[in-house]
Structures are given as structure tokens and as C-alpha cells.
Simulated assay, not measured.
Amino acid sequence: MRVAIAGAGAVGRSIASELVEAGHTVMLIERQSRQFVPETVPEADWVLGDACEMSTLEDSGIQLCDVVIAATGDDKVNLVVSLLAKTEFAVRRVVARVNNPANEWLFTESWGVDVAVSTPRILAAMVEEAVSVGDLVRLMTFRQGQANLVELTLPADTPVAGKPVRELALPRDVALVTILRGERVIVPQPDDPLEPGDELLFVTSAGTEPDIRRALGVNGQSMP
């Protein structure tokens, strides 16, 4: 996969390093010379230029990228990069960093954003996930809120203990994708039994959380 990252600050470089390590082809675009330091991620292609300029994007070959990540520290820049990547260069997947939570409402498909990543929201979700047992925690939102990644840790008194996955009356638009059990990551099979303490990860459509709770026999407040 070929990935372009706008912004070679600490965040952009960290993302680039992770993607390179995973075997992807990465290009970093940076307009500030003080942050243009190719030796920090030597495996990546580096472009010195303004990612908000059409000429920079075209010359860099961004139209050949599968994914563009707008990772600068300026929300206005990230929105412009996202819009240009999607509308002018038809990039299939655009991910944008949200620096100020108050601007999160702008990061939608209207601005070319497929996935908006808000650090405060993710941190809050991780805290909830670490302390919540017996209720759903929304970890991430996809497709502008149309789908969610949610987690639930089964309590000690769960009524579904010992039941196989196939007996869960899950809604049609819900997929149980992973069971985390101790150090194991389990791809659930129909006959796999559930155990207290299992962390269940679901991909769901919006509004199905109450149905998941009913299927698992747990109570809790609806997520916003």
C-alpha cells in the first residue's frame, strides 16, 4: 500500500515509521525546512513543499497513493489537504487528524475525510475501556458515524458464560470480530464458548448498541 502523509512533525514521523515497518511505501510531505529531516525516517520518500498547493500534490504523485493522512498540527491545513486529495486526486481513503475537539464536526465526507482521528476522544475511550466491565465502550467511529467499533468485557456473572458464539442473538448489522482472552486474540468461530472476563470487539451500525446489550444480558447507559 502506498501512503502519503502531510505533516512531518512528531506525529507524522511516528505514523510513517510504523507504516514502513509494516511493509508499506510511505511519502512524507512537509513545508517547513526545520521539520524536513529525511534521516529520521530514511525509508520514506520525502517531499519539501506545501501540501495545500495543488502543484505540490501533483508533482509528488499523490494521485498514485491508496491512502492520504493529513497529520499536521493545524486543523485548517488538514481539512484542505483532505478535500484536495479526495476531490482533485480521487484518493480512495483519506484519514485526518483532529487537533481541536471543537472542530471535529467539520471532519466529514463534505471535506473529503473518510476517517477523523481525535486524540482526546481516543484517550477517553481507552480510559473507559480500561475500567468498564459489563457495558459497551465505543472505541472508534467509521464512515462519519455510520459504523462503530465497540468493546464489552463480560462480567463475572454474565448469563452467556459457556454459551457458544452461534447462540448469541446479535442484530443483523453487528459483527463480533475478536475475542480477547488473557494474552490470546481469538477470531470467533460459531462453536467457541464465551467466558467471564472475555473482551468482545464488535463492528456495528449506528443505533444497535441496546440490541447488543440485550443479546449479552447486560445493562448500561446508551452511548452518545
Rank of each mutant, 00 (worst) to 15 (best):
A6V: 04
V150N: 11
H24G: 02
A51H: 06
V41K: 14
L154H: 04
A124Y: 06
T153H: 07
D211V: 00
A147Y: 05
V80Y: 07
D114C: 01
V117D: 09
E18Y: 00
G73S: 09
T72M: 12
I29Q: 14
P224Q: 14
R92Q: 12
V41R: 13
K76H: 09
T153M: 13
V218E: 10
S60A: 15
E128I: 00
A102L: 08
R93M: 04
A8L: 09
M54L: 13
V77N: 14
R92I: 00
F142W: 05
A102Q: 14
G134C: 01
L168S: 01
V177M: 15
Q144R: 10
F142M: 10
E30I: 02
V177K: 11
T208E: 15
E209A: 01
R93G: 01
I69D: 10
V160G: 06
P171C: 07
S17K: 11
E209I: 00
P155F: 03
D114R: 04
G49N: 10
E104Y: 04
V91E: 08
L57E: 10
V174P: 10
R213C: 06
D75M: 05
M54S: 12
G12T: 02
V81Y: 02
S118V: 02
W46N: 12
V41P: 14
E39H: 14
L64W: 06
S118Y: 03
L136I: 15
E199P: 01
A156D: 14
V117E: 08
G134Q: 07
A156Q: 14
P38N: 09
R34G: 00
G12F: 03
T25G: 11
E43Y: 02
A124M: 14
R166M: 08
F89S: 05
L170Y: 01
I69Y: 06
P38S: 11
E128P: 00
D173I: 00
F36I: 08
G9F: 01
V174Q: 11
V98F: 03
L154N: 09
V133W: 03
I15A: 06
L152D: 04
L64R: 15
R13Q: 15
R214K: 14
A90F: 04
N148L: 09
P196C: 08
S33A: 13
V98Q: 07
E39P: 02
N100M: 05
A206N: 11
Q63A: 12
M54K: 13
L168R: 04
A16T: 03
D50I: 03
V98M: 06
V26A: 11
N219G: 07
V131F: 09
G145R: 11
V67I: 15
